[in-house]
């Protein structure tokens, strides 16, 4: 058991983080053409709605929930100090989880029952569907059976995750958690690890820049002011296009 714990809780996170970092940077810099959400709406535009929308909004909020418990555990605990608020938080999160699962199942069915989609689906897509469905199911299972997740995440898992990031992994508390929770943790690492090698990479290129950029974009090939005039000598400084 100990070996397995060490592997899942210590080795795996480092391997996953390393592949995540190196893989994403490599893909973003050297395989840029392949960074795309690979939307299939153009080939099937009806069934997608009941899959993509609940799934994405579900995962956005679930992901933010985990992120908040990770970054400000004290805040979460303070919020949870009143039972009503705790209930509100847990129930909302659970609903988003259900929405995610329903969306995923719809997406899965859509992808494997629409003939055209077979030709834009690869093995990695299948792998991430299975991984995400299991992961979501495990998450819901845990939320239902081991209450209240938002509180014990903040007290147990956040310190563990910090210890990982500080390169002093401390798994004493986490190792005592039920195996379903460990499975959920393992699933998370796996997803992070394969993210750069799948279409999931699109979540890293979320177009937030759009919010503040002006609508129109003009690009200049050359800037007259910066072109060397024939009268001036070569400069040591290499001019750069803006």
């Amino acid at each position: 058991m100990n070996y397995l714990d060490n592997f899942i809780l210590i080795v795996l996170p480092y391997v996953a983080l390393a592949t995540f970092l190196i893989g994403s940077i490599y893909r973003y810099t050297s395989r840029k053409f392949q960074v795309s959400s690979l939307s299939s709406q153009f080939l099937e535009g009806k069934k997608l709605f009941m899959g993509s929308v609940p799934f994405h909004w579900g995962i956005v909020f679930i992901f933010l929930g985990h992120l908040i418990a990770f970054t400000i555990p004290k805040g979460v605990l303070a919020w949870n100090s009143q039972p009503v608020r705790l209930m509100v938080l847990e129930i909302t999160a659970f609903i988003f989880g259900i929405s995610m699962l329903v969306g995923l199942i719809n997406l899965f069915i859509r992808r494997y029952t629409t003939p055209r989609l077979k030709y834009v689906t690869n093995k990695m897509d299948f792998a991430i569907y299975i991984l995400l469905i299991l992961q979501t199911f495990a998450g819901l299972w845990i939320a239902y059976n081991f209450r209240w997740g938002s509180s014990w995440f903040s007290t147990l898992l956040t310190p563990y995750l910090y210890s990982i990031f500080k390169f002093q992994p401390d798994i004493t508390a986490v190792a005592l958690l039920p195996w379903t929770v460990k499975l959920h943790i393992m699933g998370a690492y796996l997803i992070i690890g394969i993210l750069p090698f799948s279409r999931l990479i699109h979540m890293l290129v979320l177009p937030l820049n759009y919010i503040w950029r002006p609508y129109q974009q003009v690009m200049w090939n050359w800037d007259k002011d910066k072109v060397r005039s024939s009268k001036s000598p070569w400069s040591v400084h290499r001019p750069k296009n803006t």
């Binding site: 290129v205 177009p207 820049n209 759009y210 950029r213 609508y215 129109q216 974009q217 003009v218 690009m219 200049w220 090939n221 050359w222």
Partner: peptide, 15 residues
């Protein structure tokens, strides 16, 4: 098209 692109992939050439 340029205005609608969230990633800013579309542009008009200045020249």
């Amino acid at each position: 098209c340029v205005a609608s692109c969230p990633s800013g992939a579309i542009y008009k050439r200045g020249e």
